[in-house]
Amino acid sequence: MNVFRFAGDMTHLFSVLVLLLKIYATKSCSGISLKTQELYALVFLTRYLDLLTDFISLYNTVMKLVFISSSLAIVWCMRAHPVVRRTYDKDQDTFRHYTLVAGSLVLALLFHDRFTIREVCWAFSIYLEAVAILPQLVLLQRSRNVDNLTGQYVFFLGAYRAFYILNWIYRYFTEQHFSRWIPWIAGLVQTGLYADFFYYYYLSWKNNVKLQLPA
């Protein structure tokens, strides 16, 4: 565990906490894409299959449980909570996220470390996570005013994988045979998708104006 990896995990955890705070405090999920949340739940469920078989560390197990439970709780909230579900922008959140699932599955069947259920599911979760933010970014472009918590949520979500890339660079130079080209490429694509968001987030912060993504 190096400092970049820890910073990445804490940033990721913080993004989830910000989203939970937004939904709990405002009892609203306006501006949040349910499709992105469903994709993240699928990412965690397919990535952490080893939760019950491999024990790596208490930290690892606890964080996996936190990510799985929080993503499922958010999906439940947006689908079934009597108050929150009514604030979901159903007609704005129209990204066809099934294509992202299908594409990631095809990629995982083609490119994986070993052709086993667990490795194909793991590769699937890596590819899916890289594109899971797309419905959320499209929704942000459509919803004119992005509230602060939503903007912070997306910002920390994008920042966490950037820390992971630093972690992979660090591990590459400090450990032998540490070559993970699958998360490398997917991580670069994932962080790249946030590039324009980061730019407009920086502008809104610099000019102290509301965050607005151009349509």
Binding site: R5, D9, H12, R47, D50, D54, I56, N60, M63, K64, F67, D113, W122, Y164, N167, E175, H177, F178, R180, P183
Partner: peptide, 10 residues
């Protein structure tokens, strides 16, 4: 079964 094989990251 080197450590690198087990996915030790989140």
């Amino acid at each position: 079964f080197s450590k690198g094989e087990v996915h030790d990251e989140l």
